[in-house]
Design a protein around this nucleic acid. Structure first.
Lengths: 246, 246
DNA sequence: CGTCACTTTGAGGCTAGTCAACGGCGGTGG
DNA sequence: CCACCGCCGTTGACTAGCCTCAAAGTGACG
């Protein structure tokens, strides 16, 4: 048995939401009713809007990303932002706070996004009633843990960045013309990967000089996949469990 | 509601085991019977013994540490060991593999240890029957995720090491005479914290020169707690949820 | 068309890694 | 009992990758 078995691959944006995909299969209940009971209507979230959650606040709800991209971060004593993660459609925000009941990071939109709100009280009750929901949350948390552990290792700038690009493609796929769109700023990528933004820029340029990628206006094209994968291999983010989109 | 509420603080070594502490409270069942059904007898595990689990193997069971200290690690293409975590009594090994069903790391004992084995099939059934077990596992996974995210940031050698020492004290407490025993080698600490063992040694010496710690034969004494905590603060491993022992 | 945020490019410095050598300690075996 | 060996911790000299600081270029948007 693996928890994977309980998580069929779903295609459309809306059904991607793990919470909802459980709810709509609720036995004998009215899906629409359970849904409205459970989740606040989807909320639009713009860059610069107030935070979904703030580090240190009592955790009141998990947030499920329906569209766009959300980043979570903490602010250290020096006022510096430290990005903890990027969340894409299908991802759930706040899982690291379940143990302590307190949000460990602040969450804001990177691009115009939509999220659904799963109040913790309702979720807790649903998890008891429907083990499949608990399984889905457990699976998400486990995957996020595996990712964090993989990225926590010591790797060079090239290894980190190659792994990030490939991983991103695995999660959000390619846009038109096979271009990988990077929704977040290079500064944010560097912050997340523990690299200065200048290092991100220079490393991308080095990738381009080697013929591994081609940078365009709104993203980049992965040309030499094998080379990138060879560079990223030590990080170990290439396992199937880390992918989601096609 | 927080999951914390479902996890009363338990003192003794044996009851620390999260899985068992759920089982012994099973309603209307025979605790001893459920226990023996669920877990293989506690296994002794010595340094140098075969691994509890190996990276890449299909995950067959979670392991609950009853005594001692177990480390998990991966081996990269260059044959180098990368330590993913240290596990102490009460910790569960293998949670990062639940999503994929494949062990992501190899687990061996650092010192003579005892572990209990929770076969995945039985565990899955129990999680459905008893939501409290699912909650406990979820809580552990969430805490481990929060730890991994905290440690994944970019910090100096001093910050990392101070956070590690304080965190270790929070988890395993102090021995006789208030001495913090370090069960693992400095090389392992450095590997875990992404530092060369020489850097660990030099940083500890610097701590001693500043009067923050006193190094002894079999461990060290934390003298200037405030200074250590100030140094470790940016890492953010000092939240109550990360502690366990008194 | 000016502002602002982000990216790009360069020069220099620093933290931590690497390499090498030595001392202490425990285990092993003659 | 002691010599040998290997592992671990310690110390020094050198190196390198990445950060910091600075400044100019680019694109989005009002």
């Amino acid at each position: 048995m693996t928890l994977e078995a309980a998580a069929p691959t779903l295609k459309t944006d809306c059904i991607l939401c793990p919470v909802r995909s459980c709810l709509v299969h609720r036995d004998g209940g009215d899906p629409a009713h359970a849904w409205s009971d459970m989740l606040a209507p989807r909320q639009a979230l713009m860059p610069g809007d107030r935070a979904l959650q703030r580090a240190g606040d009592r955790l009141q709800a998990l947030h499920s990303v329906r569209g766009g991209c959300v980043k979570t971060f903490t602010i250290d004593a020096a006022g510096q932002e430290r990005i903890r993660g990027f969340y894409f459609p299908g991802d759930i925000i706040g899982l690291d706070a379940l143990a302590g009941g307190v949000s460990l990071s602040t969450a804001v939109a990177v691009v115009p996004s939509q999220v659904c709100v799963a109040p913790l009280d309702d979720l807790q009750a649903l998890m008891v009633q429907m083990p499949v929901i608990a399984q889905r949350l457990m699976q998400q948390t486990s995957r996020e843990l595996a990712m964090a552990l993989a990225l926590a290792g010591e790797y060079s700038a090239e290894q980190r960045l190659a792994a990030f690009l490939l991983h991103l493609r695995g999660r959000i796929g390619l846009g038109i013309n096979g271009v990988l769109r990077l929704p977040m700023a290079q500064r944010d990528i560097g912050n997340y990967l523990r690299l200065a933004n200048e290092t991100v820029c220079r490393t991308l340029k080095r990738f381009e000089q080697k013929g591994w990628i081609v940078q365009g206006d709104r993203g980049l094209r992965l040309v030499d996949d094998a080379a990138l994968q060879a560079a990223a291999a030590p990080v170990g983010l290439d396992a199937p469990m880390f992918r989601r989109a096609a």
